[in-house]
């Protein structure tokens, strides 16, 4: 037997699947956003608000909900096409599962597709799903120390949404401290404090999404 030195990540095959999916979506003009957060941080509420606010865009939502279809129904009601993804009890979505979810959607006429990843701050950060943009949500009740505890998630994300800011008066959450901790891990991260309940901060986030969508695809179809 010979010895082959690999030095490869165990997830090398996933990385290849992810590149293939990214190319496929780019050709179709779909911006895929990987939405990651802990359970209950307000993913579904935030996404349905975005879908309702940005009526001129066509949305798809891939729901990695393990047990129920509650979130998928909420998204359909908001006006997005949605599909339920079966993660088989896995703690994260990978590129193969994401591609299969796209196949299950009958149409490809979307401007933005959100992947609502499995609710935890550890495993999803380790897997490339093929998304062009990684958005993480940290809700105020979770605390401003989370960048210290889950550095990889903050280091990997392009956008940090601090959600449920209407609850700031009731929690010891220092927004400035949280932002400086996140920027230390990832100087380029864009931060948007928002409340999906009151609508505060939503416009800035939505206009950033629009700008990213348009710069990614210079000739929107």
């Amino acid at each position: 037997m010979k010895i082959i030195e690999l030095g490869a990540s165990v997830t090398a095959s996933n990385d290849r699947d992810a590149e293939a999916l990214r190319a496929r979506l780019k050709a179709k003009g779909i911006l895929l956003v990987n939405v990651m957060s802990a359970a209950g941080s307000g993913k579904t509420t935030l996404l349905s608000r975005i879908v309702k606010d940005m009526k001129d865009l066509r949305f798809a939502v891939l729901e990695a909900d393990i047990a129920s279809d509650v979130d998928a129904l909420t998204m359909e009601q908001a006006g997005a096409k949605s599909v339920q993804v079966h993660t088989g009890g896995m703690c994260h979505m990978d590129a193969g599962m994401t591609a299969a979810a796209f196949d299950a959607l009958e149409s490809t006429d979307f401007d933005i597709a959100f992947l609502e990843n499995v609710g935890n701050l550890i495993c999803p950060a380790e897997y490339d799903t093929g998304a062009a943009l990684k958005l993480m949500i940290l809700s105020v009740p979770e605390g401003d120390d989370k960048p210290l505890k889950y550095p990889l998630m903050f280091a990997e994300s392009d956008i940090l949404v601090i959600s449920k800011t209407d609850a700031l008066p009731y929690f010891n959450f220092d927004v400035e401290k949280c932002i400086s901790r996140a920027k230390k891990l990832n100087p380029g991260i864009a931060v948007f404090p928002v409340s999906a309940k009151t609508g505060a901060g939503m416009e800035a986030l939505e206009s950033a999404l629009r700008t990213i969508r348009n710069s990614e695809f210079r000739n929107p179809n």
Binding site: M1, K2, I3, I4, E5, L6, G7, A8, S9, V10, A12, L152
Partner: peptide
Amino acid sequence: GNECIIKEIEAE
């Protein structure tokens, strides 16, 4: 300390 890498494999 949080990595997981395939260093080498023996094969034929």
